[in-house]
Design a protein around this nucleic acid. Structure first.
Lengths: 244, 244
DNA sequence: CGTCCTATTGAACAGATTCAATTACCGTGG
DNA sequence: CCACGGTAATTGAATCTGTTCAATAGGACG
């Protein structure tokens, strides 16, 4: 469908020992026995940094559960312009498309570990569990809300507001696991961030510098960002501060 | 939650005689008796042009089924910047949020007729119909795909590409009902279109003029657009033509 | 026919991009 | 441990697309 460079298919299967990251989400809707029945039907695969899980247009016959690492999801225009529609982190489900073809590409940003289920098997499992159906709907509706929030960012926010918003969303995610944390990992590069925020990598870089020199953040080694002034970052994200 | 001007609540109820536009969609998953059971539990309301159905932050306790007219959905930033996240046309469902508060506002663009169901009643109905659950998931997943396509438009397309894409999407919609048609109704004004495409009303106006003078479209009275050269409009939408 | 609102057009401006050059960083090998 | 090489990030300057502000034209309606 799209003329994008293909890499060979995923590495060979080996049994999945503990693919229960996302499964925990389903604990609330499935009893232990049912959960166990589904838990280890998948197989684990490791994917190295930069490698695709699938491309836009590929048949959507596999469901992924991201166990380790991070992914970028993106869509391409025919001339190569790219829009990153999202980043995925451990616990995320991927491949829940209704269509039989993927509408976007997924690539590993860092070395990744995923648990894979055939769509057939996943569908069969869901078939017998109406509450799973509801949970899937809940997930889709949440992603829809996130996507619409991103539409606001892309359509109406300035470069400075976009990056501030992005950093705060990453901070939120970190704090789900470590309340009070102020250190953000940035596994994706500037181009990824730019293509996610509808900017260029140069603009992203410049805004990072501006945030740094005004004392909002500190850029550390190993792709890490320390948030120094969350309050002002929030004001910047909401356009409550002119910033120049 | 948001300081937006409120208008009084919806006009008084009156019985719904034939709220079956969207119900047809569910025919595939419900038998006739079940469908009938749900069909007329709603009440019809008329809303005049410019009036809201609900605002961002309002409790999401009503489900709407759009029977006549068109709606704009939008989100506001605190300083008044607006992002229109979508336009709704007859047959559309609205209010299917998972959260208990609306994440966006909905306003009538033209005089509108909706069928309303209480969320409570709708949920109760869905509860007993697992296939409905699946259908709702299907709808949400489709809207998610549309939202991501719009992210590409907002993040990576030029003004000219955006408007061409928009016109073609409207043309698609028209042709679902009238194959081969080339006349598009534009009930929304330039500002609505601009806020949907992440542009200003002036830019939208300028691009309309450019499309007109290059023979792509003709602007007719009564907010109608005649598509004269669909092929070239598609090339423009896909950036295959420089256009200047 | 006049009023009001929307749409169009024009001209100056600004934010972000583009293109180019420099610097920083990281892994590798000596 | 340090020099080297390659990639990514940063910085600079010119350019450009789209915005802003302002004025004019058009259209619906009383």
């Amino acid at each position: 469908m799209l003329a994008v460079p293909r890499t060979p298919s995923l590495p060979a299967d080996h049994p999945c020992a503990s693919c229960d990251i996302r499964m925990r989400t389903f604990c609330s809707v499935l009893d232990a026995a049912e959960l166990e029945k589904f838990r280890c039907q998948g197989s684990t695969a490791r994917i190295e940094a930069g490698r695709p899980l699938f491309h836009q247009g590929d048949p959507a016959d596999v469901i992924f559960n991201l166990k380790k690492g991070s992914l970028r999801l993106y869509k391409l225009l025919s001339d190569g312009r790219r829009q990153v529609t999202g980043f995925l982190f451990p616990g995320a489900f991927l491949g829940l498309a209704v269509r039989d073809e993927h509408a976007f590409s997924a690539e590993a940003i860092e070395p990744v570990e995923v648990c894979r289920y055939t769509r057939q098997r996943f569908d069969a499992f869901v078939e017998g569990h109406p509450l799973m159906e509801r949970e899937l709907y809940r997930i889709a509706a949440h992603e829809l809300a996130v996507a619409r929030e991103q539409m606001v960012l892309l359509g109406r926010k300035t470069a400075v507001e976009r990056l501030a918003t992005f950093l705060l969303s990453l901070l939120d995610r970190v704090r789900e696991h470590e309340p009070g944390a102020d250190l953000i990992a940035l596994p994706m590069n500037r181009l990824d961030i730019a293509d996610y925020l509808g900017l260029t990598k140069e603009t992203v870089s410049r805004v990072f510098t501006a945030f740094k020199t005004t004392g909002l953040i500190r850029l550390l080694a190993d792709d890490q960002v320390l948030v120094l002034d969350q309050l002002r970052l929030e004001q910047v994200a909401n356009g409550e501060v002119t910033f120049h």
